Simulated assay, not measured.
Amino acid sequence: MTQETFGRGAGFSASHVSAVESGTRALTMDFIRGADRAFSNGGLFERMASKLGAPSWFLPWLDAERAATQLRYFEPNLIPGILQTENYARAVMRLNDLMSTAEVDRQVGARIARHKILTEDVPPQLVAVLDETALHRGGEDFPGIMAEQIVHLTAMAELPHVHVHVIPAAAGLHIGLSGPFALARLSQGGWVGHLENQLGGLVVDDEQEIAALQARWENVRNEALPRRQSIELMKEAYSHHGPE
């Protein structure tokens, strides 16, 4: 069954089906019900989803991010995806030389689409912590891209519901260097975590794992500068990338 044929039966476009299959669009209960319709299987997939019930199976990070009332991101090497400019996101995607231009375009579009939650009538509170080295990781291959990114990051940090904190290079070694992670607090009160690795990402909701991530969050947050000092450090970094 082609994506177009399946989509007609499920009530979704072929591009939507493709995005779900590739993991750039969340697998939702509406899509699962659509799959039941397409296969005329009497609601089998919906019953399976209800029986399993674990958020880590049927609540991917994109769903958690959209439904969150609070978001926490830590990034030791890059600007967090939800705060990236289109040019910065494209430059990062192009580092994977196995990804086609069409795939890069699709991935970048999906990443930028995530930004919508920050301009909604009732946006989530977003707190991001990043390492100072991420502000300087541009290089000669990306002229102007880092400057544009820092301008955008600084503008976002001025919003009342967005807090960006920078861990200064002088902090030296800290526990966050083990890798990036994110936390989302859902409207029901529970937390969902997300861990990134070289092959993708892992959504976690186990109570002990969430507690461990929250402890790490407190550690990296304590290493970071206050909000105003962080903005000043970002502006200082811009002077190294911006026009002379």
Rank of each mutant, 00 (worst) to 15 (best):
V20L: 09
V166N: 04
I175Q: 14
N222D: 06
F6D: 01
S100A: 11
G138R: 11
L98M: 12
P124H: 05
E232N: 10
T2D: 08
R72N: 01
E209I: 14
P55M: 04
G138E: 00
P123E: 10
S50N: 11
V164L: 05
A134L: 09
V204W: 13
P226G: 10
K235L: 14
R8W: 07
A211R: 15
Y73V: 01
G109D: 11
H194E: 09
L95N: 08
D63W: 00
V92M: 13
P243I: 12
G139W: 12
G190H: 08
G176T: 03
H16S: 09
L78D: 00
D206Q: 15
G81T: 12
G189Q: 02
R37L: 11
P55V: 08
A35E: 02
P160N: 07
A128C: 06
I175A: 14
N197Q: 11
A170N: 09
E236C: 02
A38H: 06
I210H: 11
P76T: 04
A64D: 06
P55D: 14
F6V: 10
G7V: 05
L59F: 06
G138L: 05
E218W: 01
F74R: 07
E244T: 12
A169I: 11
E209K: 11
P243T: 12
R33D: 08
I210F: 08
P60Q: 03
V203S: 12
V192E: 06
L213V: 13
G53K: 15
A212D: 15
F45K: 04
A89D: 02
D30Y: 05
R25S: 11
A237Y: 13
R221L: 12
Q125C: 07
V192P: 00
A49L: 06
L130G: 02
S15W: 01
F142W: 15
E232R: 14
A102Y: 02
